[in-house]
Design a protein around this nucleic acid. Sequence first.
DNA 1: CCCGCAATTGTTAACGTTAGCAACCGGGGC
DNA 2: GCCCCGGTTGCTAACGTTAACAATTGCGGG
Lengths: 369, 369
Amino acid sequence: MAGSEQTAAGSDQPAADAAGPGRDLPRTPVLADVAERAGVSQQTVSRVVRGSPVVARRTRERVEQAIAELGYRPNAAARALVTRRSHRIGVVATTTAVYGPTMVLQGVQEAARAAGYSVSLVMVTDLAPEAVTDAFEELHAQSVEGVVAVVPEDASQHAVQTAGALVPCVLAPGLDGDGVPDAYWAELAAARTATAHLLRLGHRTVHHIAGPQDWAESRARATGWRTALVEAGRPVPHPARGDWTAAGGHAAGHELLAAGATAVFAASDHMAIGVVRAAAERGLVVPDDVSVVGYDDVPEAAYLNPPLTTVRQDFTEIGRRCVQVLLRRLASQEVPAGRDDLALVVRASTGPPPAPARRTPAPRHGARA
Amino acid sequence: MAGSEQTAAGSDQPAADAAGPGRDLPRTPVLADVAERAGVSQQTVSRVVRGSPVVARRTRERVEQAIAELGYRPNAAARALVTRRSHRIGVVATTTAVYGPTMVLQGVQEAARAAGYSVSLVMVTDLAPEAVTDAFEELHAQSVEGVVAVVPEDASQHAVQTAGALVPCVLAPGLDGDGVPDAYWAELAAARTATAHLLRLGHRTVHHIAGPQDWAESRARATGWRTALVEAGRPVPHPARGDWTAAGGHAAGHELLAAGATAVFAASDHMAIGVVRAAAERGLVVPDDVSVVGYDDVPEAAYLNPPLTTVRQDFTEIGRRCVQVLLRRLASQEVPAGRDDLALVVRASTGPPPAPARRTPAPRHGARA
DNA sequence: CCCGCAATTGTTAACGTTAGCAACCGGGGC
DNA sequence: GCCCCGGTTGCTAACGTTAACAATTGCGGG
């Protein structure tokens, strides 16, 4: 050991080490190379790299210098192999509702990185349970330590149960286990508030465009809407169903508007955009003839025509919470429950109904429909 | 075969898991377990797993059954260690302009998966060169075989050069090396077409809201806009600068409208949304008083008020192409050049100017600003 | 002057897989 | 009868790292 090549007059190409791979060979350096250069054992280098406190100061400095000179990088695969820890989490995300999942993804990435984890991504376009299961399998094959799923609850139900046995999973809102109800209640409450806002403006009732059936979020929002209506003793019209997109909202909007809706609560901003468009196509002015409320508060919401009243949601925070829950679960710690990032933000797309129940206001534009 | 440790009888542990793989121990099975069960060597199992053709049919079947029974999964880390191939590519993505990068990411993911690669994601919020370099370093530490970068060209310049020496990199539009000019020309041409469309409608000139300076896309689009103006011999007004967002477009839009713009070409749909809003705030009607063109064709564009004329872009395809280029480069194959996914789609946000040079039309709304 | 302790450092053996080569086997050509 | 053959299969040694334990050192106390 400590065969200092330098003293051995190594100006040209001496046998740098036993096997004799020339030192000028640009092979990526490994622990052994650093050890040789620093004149210590591999184990000591390993200790330095991992920040073990038992290394003498002088030794550590010498090793660190050797690392810097050689440009040494630990090999993740070797490390994962021996420690049985990959320091990697997986994300299964749907791509349907672009804005939300993306922001969640960002939060996940951010939090994971901060915690020393890297993230593997699998995006699923096909939401058949089988496809989702495949996604989990693939992540499992990469030996991720946990998975965050940003997919509709129903599609992932089976997959989570199957994969959950192999690797810890957290479902999107990040409040699973005992927390699930909380996430549900929070969404429900926000939807209820949004609906109540419309009722308070004087609308006799509020129509709803729900999201896809298999999302728990859709159900929570629909239930919140229904709750507000029932509490106020108003009729509960049959909800339309959208697919989170503007196109879906547009179709559903026409349907509702044809039925005489004066207030529409859409389960996503993009669907709300479609509703506003449908109204315009029918010669109706928002908010004079019809009020529209969205959900998500996408960045554009404040700049639409008219600016959209909506429920703000902190997607990034959701992503961070997912990671937190996952990591705590991995460490068998208690996970926090509760969610308070939802807030109604009132803008110009909502107003009193055109013809309130009791009063007959001066006609202002006259619905041209 | 596997019995070597047993004959050696070295361990004091009751054979449970020291020697024989305790069949009731729920440890995850490894190659050796399958080998023992199938009565063959590890090597043969390995060959079956990898689909090597030299295994006899009967043997293969026996091994496959053992694999199924045990639920064996190859260990990715061990495999990566010995083959020196991670079958993983990295993506560095900015999160600023949500729609584009997300769709690119989806294309990347899709293509990578199809090619047997998994993807590691690092999102950068801070676009300082140093932060971007960090992102590359992190991916390198995960021993990715290549990196796709969806970040502004300038921020990644340094990082790509640094990291490029260690691992192959492809920059977002996916046509680098000799292809870069092509991507540039395609964007330029599309912007030129969009601008020409406005001129053909009768506008004396067209104002422009550019994207952030450090994106090559911004420069290409601005140049295309300028080219169209120069070709038509029109004055070239000073362009405003946005940040891809509706908020930025809103501010820039006010600026341009105050300067009397009748036609605005925004470098992104979200900025165009901001412009339309700014127009509305000034009592201007789109397209009667001012025409607006966007870029991207986000899914909502067709449902805005009014539906937005814009340049369609196939982001997913871009992502796929990035992977293709990367993989071909890894195999030292020729990479294709060229890009033809851009197309102007004309909708209702563009029309003739309110007061063409020669005629004096009846004033219709009168700007209340 | 020796013992033991604490602080360091080194040695050995995994981790689960694949590559390279050796070994085996039944059969046909000479 | 011998040798070589292609088709299979097995053995051994890596790959780069960490865990567990052993060895070495310096130092104060008995």
